[in-house]
Design a protein around this nucleic acid. Structure first.
Lengths: 187, 187
DNA sequence: TGGAATGCGGAATCCTGATTCCGTAATTGA
DNA sequence: TCAATTACGGAATCAGGATTCCGCATTCCA
């Protein structure tokens, strides 16, 4: 009830280019963070800036697209690898380990997560789901006695936020940070 | 052996203006972080941009001047209020509490500290002293049995880095974060 | 195959903010 | 008080990057 009746099928090269842009952006953002120029993304994608802007109308939109994808992956991991299988009392620990792994290999994502885990302000569905999953992970950990009864989602969000910062700025061993944090949540 | 013999005394309004600029910068950086325009600093200081630039040749120099001052204050607090007086085993805890207090009221500083506590790269004397003091605080805490024997300066630096991020991005209660961290360092 | 329709490339344009320049104004020392 | 010296204000200039525009190339469908 919205699109006019007869409409051509979108040109095949158009979607191919969209994929190329996304892939280039993913790689560049992962390596350098979001401090990358649009023209550079276009160049790596083998595309003109005009094309890039037709796919993603603003720099912001491109970043959001990439971040949303990664966030969804993290949520999926939490559900499938942490909550669904294995020892539930270790679910939270496995999650933190995975988050660290991902952020250590994706500078851009560490920037997003650092901010996203902060205030509960609206930031799109993917980030909201991330918050929700954290809640489930805590429940599991609490049930298993791995953390104190008074641990809240806010606590874990702070830890994830801190973890992101540590990974981004520190040369040191982030696993050590997660160990300390988890130990601190124990009764 | 450096300055030519006869030289006038610097104009009094010149130093007054320098102070005004520093004060304006401190206030603005504390409230908004370093995302403030030079012209805004000048306006608040009641001075022209030209004057501002004569005192601090680049934006970077101005930021550095403000940050160095604050860093020195933190080091002084650590020595005088944490190491010199009170229960030594609580020195680290008191220090973290103070850092949180300062960062919570100074957005710019939280940005600096988040980065500064990361790599041990050269960042000027003030930051170097901060690292040194952290070492002393750990020794005191270790001696008092407040933290495990294997806790290192790198551990605490990560925690401070994380704390800065938490304060900057989170609406939540950063004291809770320090409690968890300190608890995590206990044996 | 032919001519719409849809995309493409990338130079040109716009914007935001840092930094420079220079004609004036204020301060100093004799 | 007066010339010399030092500083000031703020418009003009520069620079880095995001975003727009439009003539040309491709792809689609009858």
């Amino acid at each position: 009830m919205s699109t006019p009746p007869t409409r051509r099928k979108p040109r095949t090269d158009a979607e191919r280019n969209r994929d190329r842009v996304l892939e280039a952006a993913r790689a560049l953002f992962a390596e350098h963070g979001y401090d990358v120029q649009m023209s550079e993304v276009a160049r790596v994608a083998g595309v003109g800036v005009g094309t890039l802007y037709r796919k993603f109308p603003t720099r912001e939109a491109l970043i959001e697209a990439v971040a949303a994808h990664r966030s969804a992956e993290m949520v999926a991991f939490a559900r499938e690898r942490c909550l669904a299988e294995g020892d539930p009392s270790q679910a939270l620990a496995r999650f933190l380990g995975h988050v660290g792994e991902v952020l250590a290999g994706d500078r851009g994502m560490s920037e997003v997560i650092e901010q996203a885990m902060g205030s509960t302000e609206p930031q799109g569905e993917p980030r909201a789901k991330l918050h929700a999953v954290v809640g489930e992970l805590i429940d599991a950990a609490r049930a298993g006695g791995t953390v104190r009864a008074d641990v809240t989602a806010a606590d874990v969000n702070m830890i994830v936020c801190g973890l992101a910062a540590v990974i981004r700025h520190t040369a040191g061993d982030w696993r050590r940070f997660t160990e300390i944090a988890l130990n601190g949540l124990r009764s």
